[in-house]
């Protein structure tokens, strides 16, 4: 079948199960488990809902929640960002790389193909962002304060995501790497709901609650005097 991956033999192609190998099935099963357990986290959050507030509000909630996800996250406002700009930008790049790698993984099910230039561009980008991830990992290992704060989950999570980006970059250029790619992706998917990677779900809830808290009290969004 034409259009099944970066080369005709490379990527997984759901539309043609004859081309699926054991590692494809493992990654598919891992994805199912990951989505199911993530859904458990998500449903639990939704079921619990937001806390009941009895105090008379001093502000509006929705603009505050909006601000929580936008202005409050900017380096201009967030001290953790403007005091640590290299880490901040490395973190943003690292997350962008992760989003791209995840997108490519999902697109792989469609059998989409990419022009050579785009493949190279994405591979270089992913190598750069995995470099950012490695930098963050090295910082965690070298800085005493961060080291003492860290547990094995912190290192494993970083290593899995960084390798995921690296292998995605490699497989974009060299299709022989795809067994390794799918095995590593499966490991990442299985680990996701168990460790700190699940902050991908809780992050949104945390920003929501923070916006709700400050919005109710009229602190966010900042008002002009």
């Amino acid at each position: 079948m034409q259009g099944c991956g970066i080369t005709e033999t490379g990527w997984l192609c759901l539309v043609n199960p004859d081309k699926m190998h054991w590692y494809h099935w493992i990654s598919l099963a891992s994805l199912g488990i990951c989505l199911l357990l993530s859904l458990v986290h998500l449903i639990r959050l939704i079921r619990l809902g937001r806390p009941t507030e009895y105090a008379t509000p001093a502000g509006k909630i929705n603009p505050a929640i909006g601000y929580s996800f936008t202005g409050a996250m900017s380096p201009a406002k967030k001290e953790t960002a403007f005091l640590h700009l290299p880490t901040y930008f490395a973190g943003i790049a690292y997350h962008l790389g992760t989003f791209l790698a995840i997108l490519l993984f999902f697109l792989s099910w469609t059998g989409i193909t990419y022009p050579v230039v785009l493949r190279f561009a994405m591979a270089i980008f992913l190598l750069a962002t995995s470099g950012c991830g490695s930098g963050i990992l090295i910082k965690r290992m070298l800085k005493k304060g961060l080291r003492s704060l860290s547990n094995p989950d912190d290192y494993i999570s970083n290593i899995l995501v960084t390798f995921f980006q690296m292998v995605t970059a490699v497989v974009l250029l060299w299709d022989k790497a795809y067994p390794v790619y799918f095995i590593l992706t499966s490991m990442l998917l299985l680990y996701f709901p168990a460790g700190k990677l699940k902050h991908a779900i809780y992050f949104f809830a945390a920003r929501y609650h923070l916006g709700f808290f400050y919005g109710w009290r009229g602190v966010w969004p900042p008002k002009q005097a």
């Binding site: 639990r44 619990l48 640590h84 880490t87 961060l146 809780y202």
Partner: peptide, 23 residues
């Protein structure tokens, strides 16, 4: 404690970036 999803959320959200130290 009844706190909606607030407590569950914050207990599960820290990624140990350590950037909060200077605050």
């Amino acid at each position: 404690q009844p706190a909606g999803s607030k407590l569950l959320t914050h207990l599960n959200s820290c990624v140990h970036c350590g950037l909060c130290a200077e605050s």
